[in-house]
Amino acid sequence: MPLISLTNLHKSYGQNEVLKGISLDIEPGEVIALIGKSGSGKSTLLRCINGLESFQEGSILVAGTSVMDSPNQLRLLRQKIGMIFQQFNLFPHLTVGRNVMLAPTVVKKTRQGEAEALAREMLDRVGLEQKFDAYPGQLSGGQQQRVAIARALAMQPLALLCDEITSALDPELVNEVLAVVRDLARQGMTLVMVTHEMRFAREVCHRLVFMHQGRLHESGPPEQVFNAPTTAELQQFLGMQ
């Protein structure tokens, strides 16, 4: 059974239809990249999966729960899917450790000591255990993004959604973040990412999904997508990279 299942998803902002009937199944452990031009609907699609965007038609099931259910169901669902943002979105008033501990203590009611141990473990996973007591403002962009990953992991999610997580970083900081994502992929985490890092997508992903004008235009394993694109739009998109 797929972990995430989208069926005939439609979304519009007023008159402007940005998703025009998307169907996509994502299996547990699968690593998928959504690629395509700006405005093709990649980020919107990603944000629909954990209910940050509403949609007008179609359905999204995550581990059997519908995103459109009650607010309580949606909160439960969000605990199962982590999200990492382009702008990191760390909480500036909390230390790195507290950033990671917040959701386990507040949402899952994990005890303080247990949550701290968990936070240290997750920060260790992204190589930042020593920054436990630092504030986000004292970290580089790359470090902040790795903390954001640790924060998402602390909820022990079934899948991670990554929304252009290296786009706001200076070029020399991109690799430390990608290295963490690569490790997660190796460990079997289900990952859905919107990315412009084509080389990385090719190396890590099981499947690439090319979106064009609100539709899934073409998809397949990286070799196929890169070496034998069938549609003119994908050829043109890859030519621009």
């Binding site: 940050l52 969000r78 999200m83 702008q87 979105n89 760390l90 917040l102 959701a103 949402v107 909820m155």
Partner: peptide, 23 residues
């Protein structure tokens, strides 16, 4: 408050009042 702060809280499963109080 930047929208991303609330979204980060929501995506971690926090409720509206929890987001207000903690974030």
């Amino acid at each position: 408050t930047p929208r991303g702060q609330r979204e980060a809280g929501a995506s971690l499963g926090l409720s509206g009042p929890q987001i207000f109080r903690h974030i």
